[in-house]
Amino acid sequence: MADVEATKSLTGLLNGIAQKAYYDNDEITEELLKTELFPDLSPEDFGALHEKMKGLLKSIAVADMDHGQLEAFLTAQMKKQGGGGLSEGQASALSRFWKSQRARVRESLLARSRWEPGLRGLTWRVDLQTSSGRGPEEAPSGPVALLELELGRPSQDSEYVCLECDEVTVSLVLKKMADIQRSIDAIVRRSQED
């Protein structure tokens, strides 16, 4: 029974560390984690455990370890001599935590590494332009593609950019996209041949 409680407390600690470090939850503090999860530990012992788990989680997250890498890493940590190693229960809790949170932590790290806003969405439609009524010399000019790009960072409101493209511009954009795809395909082929 004590092992189950210890595992739950350790899992709670890992979740708390992730909430603070990767999900920007400022309500989670080291003091809160100690009082709620490890009330019987001395502040020094809890501080050491907290720093150890925080460091291990950071190493795992930065390397974006897959299952095999994680198991090798945790095995090496369990074999460490002295007080710096992991117990089997701690390794098991870390493994379960990482399996459930890997994608979310990775997405958080990727979002933080972007300097510029990203494309959140794209909507488009084709309209037929009609005469503006300014004079008899203006005739309808044909179809127009209207593109609306939604740009933004994860923690900010979106900004919208609207573009109007005629048939020639759309053809040029499609040609450029095809050129980019051919370049990517050539790079992929070369890397697969090496």
Rank of each mutant, 00 (worst) to 15 (best):
M1C: 04
A2H: 09
D3E: 09
K8P: 01
T11R: 06
G12I: 03
L14H: 00
N15R: 14
G16D: 00
A18F: 00
Q19D: 10
K20L: 08
A21Y: 00
Y23K: 04
Y23V: 08
D24G: 05
E27V: 01
E27M: 05
I28R: 07
I28Y: 01
I28W: 00
E30W: 01
E31K: 09
T35C: 02
E36M: 11
P39L: 05
D40P: 01
P43L: 05
E44K: 13
D45K: 13
F46Y: 10
G47Q: 09
G47P: 04
L49S: 04
L49E: 02
H50F: 15
K54P: 00
L57M: 12
I60G: 00
I60P: 01
I60W: 00
A61P: 02
V62K: 13
A63V: 12
A63E: 15
D64N: 15
Q69R: 07
E71R: 15
E71K: 15
F73D: 01
L74E: 00
T75V: 15
T75S: 11
Q77M: 14
G85D: 07
G85T: 09
G85S: 08
L86G: 01
S87I: 03
E88K: 14
A91Q: 02
A93S: 13
L94P: 00
L94M: 08
S95T: 14
F97A: 05
F97S: 05
W98H: 04
W98P: 02
K99W: 09
K99D: 15
R104L: 12
R104D: 14
V105M: 09
E107F: 13
E107I: 14
L110P: 06
L110E: 15
R114I: 04
R114Q: 11
W115S: 07
E116H: 13
L119S: 09
R120K: 13
R120H: 10
G121T: 04
G121Q: 01
L122V: 15
T123I: 15
W124V: 00
W124S: 12
W124N: 03
D127E: 12
D127M: 10
L128A: 10
Q129W: 06
S131I: 03
S131H: 06
P136H: 08
P140W: 11
S141Q: 13
S141I: 10
P143T: 05
P143N: 11
P143W: 03
L146C: 05
L146Q: 06
E150M: 04
R153D: 03
Q156G: 05
D157P: 04
E159T: 06
Y160N: 07
V161G: 03
C162W: 10
L163R: 02
E164I: 03
C165E: 10
E167A: 14
V168I: 10
T169A: 11
T169K: 08
L172K: 13
L172V: 09
V173Y: 06
V173Q: 05
K175R: 14
K176H: 11
D179A: 10
Q181F: 12
Q181T: 11
S183M: 09
S183I: 07
V188E: 09
R189F: 08
R190G: 11
S191E: 15
D194A: 12
D194C: 03
